[in-house]
Design a protein around this nucleic acid. Structure first.
Lengths: 236, 236
DNA sequence: GTATCGCTCAATACACTGTATCGCTGACAG
DNA sequence: CTGTCAGCGATACAGTGTATTGAGCGATAC
């Protein structure tokens, strides 16, 4: 039982083999499987099969399944474009937030992993660094604690918002309904619940709200957070 | 395969039995197991064993494991005190946010389930209703969309913040270290990463930030969100 | 050239998981 | 007392992550 992290262990040298293997190949195969069929499709047996290899061969490259999942998360972080240094902090954080959102839409399983463990892979670290760096040094954020507080708040919002959005999208897709159908059908349950009159405000939301795309909601919330940060850190 | 939700199916009548069963007993047993050993300890066999019953007996009360998890989540929502109607919206949302946070600290597995599926249990609904109701009708929030936007933003932040916090706490506990130990040791990995100089701001955070309790961070972020909402919805 | 070592990978095995199926059993209906 | 039927336990199945084992093979030592 090595206590090292994945990121600490070098990849084994590539042997000549009928079907060569590498962490990258394994991770990409796993991501493809997860994209197509959800996280449940990611098992050592299936990933290995997708690479024409025996399941146990993966253990040469990855010590445990959680490690594989960590690698997948970091790979996705690598897909997200980072803002150019020097960008206005508000624009930079907005760009990062949207980057995470679109990545999560491309890889819906990501949200199941975001909550799990802290992410310490190189791409994740680069990501955090970029976020922090856009605030560090600005006069509005005098100490590193201010920087950290602001970035944490934005990241927390993004994780939560993306999580909810993806969860709902998944449920809609799995029930094979559009939003209006869902609102109309929604199982008899919701209707009866709303009919009890115990949830008047919720009923208003369901019947009166303009349910446009989820994107505007995301932007609204994000701007709340950014506004809050801005007002707290502007000359009084 | 009944398409009904759990909340739609009445509980079977209680039979006289050496060891009586009910949804409540099952859910409480499952929660206790999860509190003690994490979500992995929650299996039909183990829950049933804790109740001196055969695993298959649970299927009379619960149709699937996901249903059991849904019931667990809703049970926890039931533990959270709701604000008295009439409370100032800012105080009310703050109270709810802290309620969720402390519930998640009591039941760390909750964060793994929050991201999963939307919550439609009665307690969850009551919760959402209460949150919405504290904003609805105030002049600052003229339409139901404003109400929904604000509540969604706060909830998104709470979910994300609590998720990060619990994830970190779990990692610390699992590695059996306090925060300072972790920061010092942290595996050779972090130190080497920071030593590369590619993450200067991150390094500053690790070495210079006042890592007090996580609670202040939560409050800071929450106030950012609330401030943002307040400024957008105040007379210009 | 042969023998031995060490490494790599596949097969097998184990302890689990969620859940479908099947027969028993015990309570009630007539 | 007999028939029916519901509820429960045992069993079974397909799947999981991973430990162990053993076979093959290439490189090195003599």
């Amino acid at each position: 039982m090595s206590n090292e992290l994945v990121w600490d262990r070098p990849e084994p040298p590539s042997k000549p083999s009928p079907t060569p293997l590498s962490r990258e190949l394994i991770v990409n195969a796993a991501i493809r499987l997860a994209d197509e069929g959800g996280l449940d499709e990611v098992s050592f047996r299936k990933v290995a099969a997708a690479l024409n290899a025996g399941p146990m061969r993966l253990y040469g490259y990855v010590e445990t399944k959680d490690e594989l999942l960590d690698l997948m998360v970091d790979e996705v972080y690598g897909e997200i474009a980072l803002p150019d240094p020097g960008t206005d902090w508000r624009a930079a954080l907005t760009q990062i937030a949207h980057g995470i959102r679109t990545a999560a839409k491309r890889h819906p399983w990501l949200v199941d992993l975001l909550g799990g463990r802290p992410h310490r892979g190189p791409n994740s670290l680069a990501h955090i660094e970029a976020s922090l760096a856009t605030l560090d040094g600005r006069p509005e954020f005098p100490t590193i604690d201010h920087v950290l507080g602001a970035v944490s708040a934005v990241m927390a919002f993004v994780r939560g918002a993306v999580g909810s959005e993806i969860a709902e999208a998944r449920e809609e897709r799995s029930s094979g309904m559009t939003e209006e159908q869902w609102q109309a059908a929604s199982g008899p349950y919701m209707q009866r619940m709303l009919a009890t009159g115990k949830f008047p405000t919720l009923a208003k939301v369901m019947f009166e709200a303009e349910h446009t795309n989820a994107e505007p909601w995301f932007d609204t919330g994000l701007n709340y957070v950014l506004d809050g940060i801005a007002t707290r850190h502007s000359p009084a």
